[in-house]
Write a protein that binds this DNA or RNA. Structure first.
Length: 468
RNA sequence: GCUCCCUUCGUCUAGUGGCCUAGGACACCGCCCUCUCAAGGCGGGAACACGAGUUCGAGUCUCGUAGGGAGCGCCA
């Protein structure tokens, strides 16, 4: 039987980091086995579901490259089907109508809690066989087995056993005519032929109930894999006010999708000592059974390191479009300076994100906006600065090929001729070109500025130098 | 309260009874390289939550304790 997995987010917010990892593992598991990956939107919560959230999730998945083979399917479009299955259960005597008001249910829970028991529904209408009545509080409840236990072998947690006495007759259909989650997932996973359910471990507790529904339906039970949650850097649960952001925020912060995917795949899963995985390697090596059972913390420092690995090792031509996107975001027109593909190698050793890279690249696209006073005082007002700048201006004017290598040789010749160390030559030039003491190697810094602009800046610095 | 789950360096992890004087990576510290900043190279400190038991032998198996988490909805 071919493997079929699904990612089933509820559209109540953006695709966050935990959801992204779940989606990745589902996708990987399907791809690894040559199976199918299905996307399903669980939107039966009409109060909180929004179209914007659906779009945000779709955007996030597309950016990450987690393409679905089927879907997205929407639960709200399958209402008739849930109704049909519920009727089937009703007819088979495996479900029943109940008419308690919310207040009565609350009172029931309070009473149970007061006795030190688990708050649950007491099954009042279970075997009462009352005639059907139209009632605003009418719900359909599942007749959960009252003895025995449910055992399943979770692919990440191992064997889990649950006594049926812990389970109550949960609601299948709400009084508003919508199915509940625990019922809709089963019907959906069944109809969609899902063979492996991979989801967050906050669903472990629901699994026994769902298995009972499968069995009541006489249907095959899929395998389950419950992923531990991802904690914030401080070890606290991620929440809106605690660092939980959508994956698209990571794009804005300058991370590459591949780097994020690589970070996520290693959070809870590993393959020996390997840290860097191409997408193909992930697909080939990933096995849901190798996923760890314990929660992991999100570590920005490591994500940053990984992102830089990709910045350094991927083809600059492939990174260039993303850099352009970031340049435009900070108001820079990429056509007013060097080709982004040439900027990438100059800065990839110096930044961890594309956002920082764009910021640092600004010197080649816009005039120097601000001069570092200390840099000017130290390197432009020094005794030898004017001579260096003068020599550089003349040399740059007559240089044959405008390439880093000849520029490098020119700088070296100036150092030799003036009998100065490289530091005494490079630093004044660096300040001249950037207004600061920090930049890529001096030859690349000059090269990327372009000949005219480089000479203009050197002349300007020379004026400052002489004035001092 | 009840049920279920989790527990190896600061962090992510390797480890499936002897190969472990517990390995790698990030982070941190030091040295080297060096035109700045980085990157890179080399080196360093740093962990099996605790207690019993099983066994010739336990990070690895069992039980308990502690700590953490999840769930107990007409939310998903």
């Amino acid at each position: 039987m071919s493997v079929r997995t699904r990612f089933a987010p509820s559209p109540t917010g953006f695709l966050h980091i935990g959801g992204a990892r779940t989606a990745l593992y589902c996708w990987l598991e399907a791809r690894h086995h040559g199976g199918s990956f299905v996307l399903r939107v669980e939107d039966t919560d009409r109060e909180r579901s929004t179209d914007e959230a659906v779009q945000a999730i779709l955007d996030g998945m597309r950016w990450l490259g987690l393409d679905a083979d089927e879907g997205p399917f929407y639960q709200t479009e399958r209402l008739d089907r849930y109704r049909e299955v519920a009727e089937q259960l009703l007819a088979a005597g495996k479900a029943y109508y109940a008419y308690e008001t919310p207040q009565e249910i609350d009172a029931m829970r309070e009473a149970a809690r007061a006795k030190g028991e688990k708050p649950r529904y007491n099954g009042y209408y279970r075997d009462r066989n009352e005639p059907y009545r139209d009632d605003p509080h009418r719900v359909i409840r599942f007749k959960n087995p009252q003895s025995g236990s449910v055992v399943f072998h979770d692919k990440v947690k191992g064997r889990i056993e649950w006594s049926n006495t812990e389970l109550d007759d949960f609601v299948l259909f709400r009084s508003d005519g919508f199915p509940t989650y625990n019922f809709a997932v089963v019907v959906d996973d069944l109809d969609m032929g899902i063979t492996e359910v991979i989801r967050g471990d906050d669903h472990v507790n629901n699994t026994p109930r769902q298995i009972n529904v499968y069995e009541a339906l006489g249907a095959p039970v899929p395998t389950f894999a419950h992923l531990p949650m991802i904690l914030g850097e401080d070890g606290q649960k991620l929440s809106k006010r605690h660092g939980a952001v959508g994956v698209m925020q990571y794009r804005e912060d300058g991370y590459l999708p591949h780097a994020l995917l690589n970070y996520l795949v290693r959070l809870g899963w590993s393959h020996g000592d390997q840290e860097i995985f191409s997408i193909e390697e992930m697909v080939r090596l990933f096995d849901i059974a190798d996923v760890n059972a314990s929660a992991a913390r999100f570590d920005m420092a490591k994500l940053g390191w990984l992102n830089q690995q990709y910045l350094k090792n991927e083809d600059p031509a492939r990174i260039a479009p993303e850099l352009e996107w970031h340049l435009r975001r900070i108001g820079i027109d990429p056509s007013t300076g060097p080709a982004p593909a040439e900027v990438v190698p100059a800065l990839c050793d110096r930044v961890q994100t594309l956002k920082d890279m764009a910021e640092r690249a600004r010197v080649w696209y816009a005039p120097i906006a601000e001069w570092d006073d200390k840099a000017v005082a130290k390197h432009l007002k020094s005794a030898t600065a004017s001579a260096v700048l003068e020599a550089a201006r003349d040399g740059l004017r007559t240089l044959d090929a405008w390439q880093p290598e000849p520029i490098h040789e020119l700088v070296q010749r100036i150092a030799e001729r003036l009998e100065l160390g490289m530091g005494k030559v490079a630093q004044p030039l660096r300040v001249a070109l950037t207004g600061t003491q920090v930049s890529p190697s001096i030859d690349h810094t000059i090269y990327l500025a372009g000949r005219d602009e480089a000479i203009r800046r050197v002349e300007h610095a020379l004026a400052i130098s002489r004035a001092g």
